[in-house]
Design a protein around this nucleic acid. Sequence first.
DNA 1: CTAGGATCCTGTCAGC
DNA 2: TGCTGACAGGATCCTA
Length: 283
Amino acid sequence: MPELPEVETIKRGLERLTLNKRIARVHVLCEKSWRGYDAERVIGQTITKFDRRGKALLICLSNGLWMMVHLRMTGQMIYAGAEKFAAGHPDGNFTAEMPSKHTRIYFDFDDGTHLYFNDQRKFGFIKLLDELGLQEDEFLRKLAPEPWDMSKDEFWARLQKHQKSPLKAVLLDQHVIAGVGNIYADEACFVAKIYPGARVSEVSRETADALLDGICAVMQASIDSGGSTMKDYVRADGTKGSYLEKFAQVFRRDGDKCRVCGSKILKTRVAGRGTHYCPECQG
DNA sequence: CTAGGATCCTGTCAGC
DNA sequence: TGCTGACAGGATCCTA
């Protein structure tokens, strides 16, 4: 899915385009994609605030309810008004007619513009909660701190609880650190010069420090460039999202040359996920 | 408690 | 062409 930087990109885009807009209608095309309170309760409400925790987007409404959006693997948010804004899982929907066959939920604003929640695989959802429900939500309650809010001591301590696991499995664990997904786990391991399949017990304190720095650095670079994308989607201002094209050192570059040492980037399987690395730099 | 695998779902692609 | 299995930017549930 969309990892932390993509969700942050969506948050910033929707903040700019939909804040203070009033929801005139809501269309739930796939029941499974809607959770929590009945969707009827968002009708007539104004969007008052956005927030984000890890990969979860939070949208506050004027009646005090919150919509928690989790995009999981293939979710995307698309705003269609005078300008179009699309972010999340990159695919043809970014330029397709809306609603598309992957649209699961959409909102009509009273100014005639629309917000679409698309999700090919239906793993994602929008959950309507009150303030208490938000505080008690299991996912949010167990979510580890944001990478920038975690000290190196704390990151080190959290790693130590999973000595026997492959490093990558722990980086992907949202109870250990929030927001890291398959792309940034691989990229951070490259920056810290460690093989993602290494057991945590083999990770030195110096490497762990470099990992935390690397996670923050690759994510910040991605946010600064508007989130990653693999395809040719064009953002509202006409520029392309381009993290993978410009910054990815290993992710989906298997078969290509390492930009540091020239070795061939390899792909393998770690913790059940496709994993990319340079055998020379991350030996 | 941890670790690892199956599972939710749809679509695409490689290899017969 | 048609079929089959593998895989996919995530997280949870079940089992050992």
